[in-house]
């Protein structure tokens, strides 16, 4: 190159990229696609707001469908920093390393589960082995990498449904859709309140902007069911579930009263969910 001449662009320099970074990222995507090819439906459960009972409803959905579907159900706990769904499903480690990949833990109804809960010591937060400084630069990439490995490196086997329990926030579902283009859609969970409505609406709009199909809304804690007489009394003010369903033109899949007991499958949820998925 003569002095003063301008550099060529990346694409003008012929030949394959010798750093092979792009090729490896492409290979990672192929591994995810190959693993998910055996799974008929991949669905995310999301909410813009924390504490709405997303993991509880993920567990309820998985349990109910595992009893109905013969081909099997799996759950990915994508809430890496605050994993709860594995315990709700009765799944525990250690995880088995096998030639075909990491074997998922088995929960109730033989639901296959992967979660950071199996990796972390009780009461300890998610921490990374590498330098503590400038974590903000690489932490997001690592978290996405863990989720990618949860999808690609777990020997899920053939499944009817894989449910991904996302952390609270608006962007998680778009990240999943990028990792797993076969994602069929997302179910949104809200409380009845106006605060929850505002937060979940943003998350649903974000998903819609990313081209993700919205499968429906579940309103959780829609009242309190008296364990003695069975009657349901109001718990929170508002009707966020029906408002969100109307705003986005999607079904209200269930209104679930608060229950202090074991995971219960809300009445009507499974039928409506399967209808939406069809």
């Amino acid at each position: 190159m003569s002095e003063g001449a301008s550099f060529r662009t990346y694409f003008e320099v012929e030949g394959e990229d010798r750093s092979r970074l792009g090729a490896q990222v492409g290979e990672q995507r192929r591994r995810v696609a190959a693993r998910l090819a055996e799974i008929r439906n991949v669905v995310a459960v999301m909410s813009g707001k924390g504490g709405v009972g997303k993991s509880y409803l993920t567990a309820a959905l998985a349990l109910g469908l595992a009893r109905r579907l013969t081909r099997g159900v799996g759950v990915v706990d994508a809430d890496l920093k605050s994993p709860t769904v594995a315990r709700l499903l009765g799944a525990a480690g250690p995880l088995a390393l096998s030639p075909e990949g990491v074997r998922p833990a088995l929960g109730n109804e033989n639901i296959r589960v992967i979660s950071t809960d199996f990796l972390l010591a009780d009461g300890r937060p998610l921490r990374w082995r590498e330098p503590e400084h400038e974590r903000f630069v690489w932490r997001g990439a690592l978290e996405a990498g863990v989720l990618r490995e949860f999808l690609a490196d777990v020997a899920w086997g053939p499944l009817e449904l894989l449910v991904i329990d996302l952390p609270p926030g608006a962007d998680g579902v778009a990240d999943v859709a990028e990792l797993a283009p076969s994602l069929k859609g997302a179910v949104s969970v809200t409380l009845p309140t106006d605060e929850s409505y505002q937060s979940v609406r943003r998350a649903m709009a974000s998903a819609q902007d990313a081209g993700i199909r919205l499968l429906g809304v579940i309103e959780n804690m829609s009242g309190y069911r008296c364990p003695s007489c069975g009657s349901t009394e109001p718990l929170f003010p508002g009707s966020a579930g029906s408002r969100l369903a109307e705003d986005f033109g999607v079904p209200l899949l269930a209104q679930v009263p608060f229950s202090a007991g074991a995971v219960e499958v809300p009445s009507g949820l499974l039928d409506r969910f399967l209808e939406t998925l069809a």
Binding site: R18, S19, R20, L21, A23, Q24, V25, Q28, G93, L97, G101, V102, T116, L119, L120, A121, R124, L126, R127, W128, R129, E130, W138, R139, A141, L142, G145, V146, R148, E149, D153
Partner: peptide, 28 residues
């Protein structure tokens, strides 16, 4: 670079299952 699960120059062997998790998560 490591967080992306890639190596400059490419890999000579396929990565082990959950290599990123096992190498980076401080866990049990």
């Amino acid at each position: 670079v490591r967080s992306l699960g890639v190596e400059i120059g490419g890999r000579t062997l396929d990565p082990e299952p959950m290599a990123l998790v096992r190498e980076n998560v401080v866990g049990r």
